[in-house]
Design a protein around this nucleic acid. Structure first.
Lengths: 113, 113
DNA sequence: AAATATACCTTTTAATTCTAGGTAGGTGAA
DNA sequence: TTCACCTACCTAGAATTAAAAGGTATATTT
């Protein structure tokens, strides 16, 4: 539980989704998620960087360095075509999962499906 | 991620919800979830029994044995008042989590919240 | 008599996340 | 100018969790 793949996929689902909007660097992803999610999705750096490296190894994302006029250089990540396909699949899985959870959770009268 | 508490809580959320409907025994919970969830929430026995024991230790559920005319005796579980409170909290957390996920996932145009 | 189904359980393995660090460059205030 | 802080990257280890894989026992069915 829950569908092991789905669980495993949840961090990567979020990361792929964000990178599908635009290229971002690690530190930015952390801040962006914290901002957007009101703590519910907050990914810590110790979670994020290994997760990014795994996605990179799977070739769902690619990275490139970008020097900054101010501050340290940034390692930007970009979603690949394969990454986009995976994102689609994972999004469907997520939606199905939510449907099922809601069936189980919101039940009050009827007892079998 | 996800909100560590939420992740941890997801199995117990489902179990508490089922036991809030009626008293059930372990084997029944496994079968019931498999039936209801179309495989998405299928909890395996190796997951279920430890989870039940933990909930019992936390005093969110209580158990009692019931001899059967046919077949092995069953250990029924019943949700406690404390368990019902926890269930309410966890349900709210889950709903909040889904909202936030949907904000992140369903985004296509607007880019900041 | 053997296979199957019910019903309970635990140990080990695998995966994931967090904690708690570490490095380094740049900025701003005292 | 020195010290604190922020940006930005990273990893090792601990903790948690679920699943896999096994085990026990009773009852039914073939």
């Amino acid at each position: 539980m829950f569908n092991r793949e789905l669980l495993k996929g949840s961090t990567s689902l979020v990361l792929l989704q964000l990178l599908n909007e635009r290229d971002m660097y690690g530190y930015e992803l952390v801040k962006e998620l914290a901002k957007r999610s009101e703590q519910s999705l907050q990914v810590k750096e110790g979670t994020l960087y290994p997760a990014l490296h795994k996605l990179e190894k799977q070739e769902y994302i690619q990275c490139y360095w970008q020097e900054q006029e101010k501050g340290p250089a940034r390692k930007y990540y970009k979603i690949t075509d394969e990454g986009k396909n995976v994102l689609l699949e994972k999004t469907k899985e997520w939606q199905h999962f939510v449907q099922v959870m809601n069936k189980v959770i919101r039940r009050t009268e009827n007892d079998s499906i």
